[in-house]
Design a protein around this nucleic acid. Structure first.
Length: 832
RNA sequence: GCCCGGAUGGCGGAACUGGCAGACGCACGGGACUCAAAAUCCCGCGAGGGCAACCUCAUGUGGGUUCGAUCCCCACUCUGGGCACCA
């Protein structure tokens, strides 16, 4: 021990110097290789945190919050005897970096290493148990070589394809956005209204995995809110596909009021529609096709052609915002009629942009009586509204003031032989009936679209494909990877719809790998989300250069034991990562379908009741707090603010309480003595605390774990007595995950020459915790009136007798007890 | 509009499976130490009443179930988030 012994008067020398202690242990950890993971070690535990984007501003307090919560869990698992792999890397490709580089006029290839170095410095200061031997940087050719390999793997498995598609185009970022990157019609990055543009794009067939991505959600240990967000995003609906015959306007000359017999409609176009309410088929009074529907032109009558084309052109030009914000419905009659397959009636066919080509079949049967949108449209254009469901108090002709969409206790009306059936029964019966007439039942539709991964930008991994006039689309051979991103000075995007790389002929001219003739490279780069969709597979295999991930190591370390990150990635990153992992599993390269056995979203840190923002000037700079208080105090305080999964409010005032706790911890160890026997009551509290903290750490309930340690500290330091070594040594271990530097220092003061993180978590001694007496809560008529200390084995009768013998309690009992509720070991309630 | 979650002292928050509401910390008040201050240590700290022992009220609002409700049920208010013309 280095400090002088001053039992009884610790207050004069309380306190420690975090700056010196933390610097010492940062160095010592590097020297000893404390944070390096032996990948062949026993009981592997893969502790993963979402890797950061290394911004120029440096580490954000939100990053630090997430990483600290992660680190504490990882350190705890290590103390539990696991070999913990806790890697961290950088997600440095993407529009964010590129835009920033353009703004400050520094090439991203110079900017990113600078930012990474600054991040690394801050991360080291925070005392994270990160194995830097297994880091990744998505912009490093040694990494994106394998991102390109992932693309080729999907191409090989028929999961990557190219198509001309209307895509979301941000006129400000000058690039295509994935649906996930459009929020309310605005670019999530720059808030510019997104336009529709038709471009040739690479897509991943994630929709083919929708059913499994949904089904597996029930099998993984994730926060319910995250799973719910994914379910909503996948948006599965089950229904039927009905076939509507549209009479050919050329041969049938169909017009209002003219019934055309089915025999003369042989040239009719059949248009499938998807519905979740086949029971309302008799109420389908018109049909609507999306303006982009391929059959629209075929069915439009000559006299309506001009109107329909004008409408289609108008909607095409319109950006998503005005389509979605303009609530009033627009549409045009096509001049054609379709046959309602249930009633045989002729119903008009319209086109309107409230029907989306991307969902279902791009055409609907409109049931204005029982669908709000159809009701609005029918009202606006004077189309017939027919009631086919009636609530208990309504009849078949009760007028509809609005769409009646409630299907709980309605019964069918105006539906021929189905009249009177409750909706639930009708759904089944009508579906069966329609199925016999050519409809398809049990059809599922997803809201999810295929993942567009093309980006017409510079700062990303080039998509590894070559176009040859003779051989067509040729994948770059794996041996030729990586397709290096060239260092070009003019990487500013333009309106051309192609990547800046397309301006560099010397780069994109390349001989065809198959025939050797002159060919051209793909000039688009891939979406940043592809970089992050597989990085967790890479960590254990760094620095292998011959494979993306080693078979043996992957089998040993995957799936990830626990993944911690922000809920803002609930539907983007987490869904893509699950998809890519599932594909790799199908390819036999990864042991499980799901990459993350357990996922927990951490909360957000706000400050003084408000979200942190530069404009508000309330941003917490981690460096400043580490200077003033030390990293250990900042870490512990962040975790003490509130439940880790909920976040909390950062208040400057409150941090002092945590620092006081660490000062007292330091003083306790320094003052502890080894002679004599430890105090029995203190030891009981200690072992209760060991149990409590262990349980809380496993459950990420860090705030209550810290409270429990503080509570123990209050017991430990009560009175003038110097603590006993046996009373403080386990406490150092409990505090170690939170405050690793001071814990190492104290561990050394306690005479250890190896790292505290190579020690073991203290065992709970149940014999110390157990007590043969307990505090019985005494209630009279449900009101607590006091408590009695009684033996554990006390019977109800004995407990009642004890209460009656106690003057302070028995005075509440007036008359004979009517009823007695006795909860052994806890409570006695006497009802009089 | 639909789907999740939340609301507890001056503040952040705690409370196992329906069983002592307010742990722990901050702020605040009082005391010890000091010439003094800071630091440190000790005591108090939901509201109202009482000299006191104690009593009454109290977990967003209004009902309900129960011996007993912060916890379960119904209705509502406010609030955070997700989805949103998805047929």
């Amino acid at each position: 021990m280095t400090a002088p012994e001053m039992p009884g008067r610790p207050e004069e020398t309380v306190g420690y110097d975090p700056t010196a202690v933390e610097a010492k242990w940062r160095e010592r950890w590097v020297e000893r290789g404390t944070n390096a993971t032996d990948l062949n070690g026993e009981r592997p535990y893969y502790q993963l945190m979402m890797f950061p984007y290394p911004s120029a501003e440096g580490l954000h307090i939100g990053n630090l919050y997430a990483f600290t919560g992660n680190d504490i869990h990882g350190r705890f698992q290590r103390l539990q005897g696991h070999t913990v792999l806790q890697p961290l890397g950088y997600d440095a490709f993407g529009i964010h970096s590129e835009n920033f580089a353009l703004k400050v006029g520094v090439h991203p290839m110079e900017l990113i290493p600078r930012n990474v170095a600054n991040f690394r410095r801050q991360l080291d200061r925070a005392g994270l148990m990160v194995d830097w031997n297994r880091s990744v940087d998505t912009t490093d050719p040694a990494y994106y070589k394998w991102t390109q390999w992932v693309f080729l793997k999907l191409l090989e498995r028929g999961l990557a394809y190219k198509k001309q598609a209307a895509v979301n185009w941000c006129p400000s970022c000058k690039t295509v956005l994935a649906n996930e990157q459009v929020e309310g019609g605005l670019c999530e990055r720059c808030k510019t209204p997104v336009e529709l543009r038709s471009l040739e794009q690479w897509f991943f067939r994630i929709t083919g995995y929708a059913e499994r991505l949904l089904g597996n959600l029930d099998t993984i240990d994730w926060s319910e809110s995250t799973r719910m967000a994914q379910r909503n995003w996948l948006g599965r609906s089950e229904g039927s596909e009905l076939r509507f015959r549209v009479l050919d306007p050329l041969t049938d000359a169909g017009s209002a009021g003219v019934m055309v017999s089915q025999e003369v409609t042989s040239g009719a176009v059949v248009i499938p529609v998807f519905t979740t309410r086949p029971d309302t088929i008799f109420g389908a009074t018109y049909m609507v096709l999306a303006p982009e529907h391929p059959s629209l032109e075929r069915i439009t009558s000559a006299d309506q052609r001009a109107d329909v084309e004008a409408y289609r052109d108008a909607t095409r030009r319109q950006d998503i915002v005005s389509r979605k914000v303009n609530k009033e419905k627009t549409g045009v009659f096509t001049g054609s009629y379709a046959v309602n397959p249930a009633s045989g009636e002729m119903i008009p066919v319209w086109t309107a942009d409230y029907v989306l080509m991307e969902y279902g079949t791009g055409a609907i049967m409109a049931v204005p009586g029982h669908d709000e949108r159809d009701f609005e449209f029918a009202t606006q254009f004077g189309l017939p509204i027919v009631r086919v469901v009636a609530a208990p108090h309504e009849g078949p002709h009760t007028p509809l003031a609005a769409a009646y969409t409630d299907d709980a206790d309605g019964r069918l009306v105006n539906s021929e032989h189905f009249d009177g059936l409750p909706v639930a029964d009708a759904k089944q019966r009508v579906t069966e009936w329609l199925t016999r007439r050519g409809a398809a039942k049990g059809v599922t539709t997803f809201r999810l679209r295929d993942w567009c991964i093309s980006r017409q930008r510079y700062w990303g991994p080039p998509i590894p494909v070559i176009y040859c006039d003779a051989c067509g689309t040729v994948p770059v051979p794996v041996k030729d990877l990586p397709v290096l991103l060239p260092h070009i000075t003019d990487y500013k995007p333009d309106d051309s719809g192609v990547s800046p790389l397309a301006r560099y002929e010397e780069w994109y001219h390349v001989p065809c790998p198959t025939c050797g003739q002159p060919a051209r490279r793909e000039t688009d780069v891939s979406d940043t989300f592809l970089d992050s969709a597989w990085y967790f597979l890479r960590y254990p295999s760094v620095p292998r250069d011959d494979v993306p991930f080693d078979a043996e190591l992957t089998r040993r370390w995957l799936p990830v034991s626990i993944y911690i990150g922000g809920n803002e990635h609930a539907v983007l990153h987490l869904l893509y990562a699950r998809f890519i992992n599932m594909v790799m599993h199908d390819a036999g390269l990864v042991p499980t379908e799901e990459p993350f056995a357990k996922f927990r979203a951490h909360g957000l840190i706000i400050r003084d009741g408000h979200k942190m923002s530069k404009s508000r000037g309330n941003v917490v700079i981690p460096d400043a707090y580490m200077d003033d208080w030390g990293a250990d105090t900042l870490r512990t305080y962040l975790m003490f603010i509130g439940p880790f999964e909920e976040g909390g409010d950062f208040r400057d005032q409150s941090i002092s309480g945590v620092r006081r706790f660490l000062d007292r911890l330091f003083a306790s160890v320094r003052d502890a003595k080894g002679d004599g026997a430890p105090d029995a009551l203190v030891m009981r509290k200690l072992h209760q605390t060991i149990r409590k903290v262990g349980g809380d750490l496993a459950a990420l309930s860090y705030n209550t774990a810290i409270a429990a340690m503080m509570e123990y500290m209050n017991v430990l330091r009560r009175g003038e007595r110097a603590p006993h070594l046996a009373e403080v040594t386990p406490l150092v271990l409990l505090a170690a995950p939170f405050a690793p530097h001071i814990a190492e220092e104290l561990w050394e003061m306690l005479g250890h020459s190896t790292s505290i993180f190579d020690a073991r978590w203290p065992e709970v001694d149940e014999s110390l915790v157990r007590d043969d007496r307990f505090e019985l809560v005494v209630q009279v008529n449900g009101k607590t009136r006091g408590k009695l200390s009684l033996p554990n084995a006390v019977t109800q009768d004995a407990a009642v007798a004890a209460v009656q013998a106690d003057a302070a309690l028995s005075r509440f009992i007036t008359g004979a007890p009517k009823k007695v509720i006795f909860v052994p070991g806890r409570l006695l309630n006497i009802v009089v």
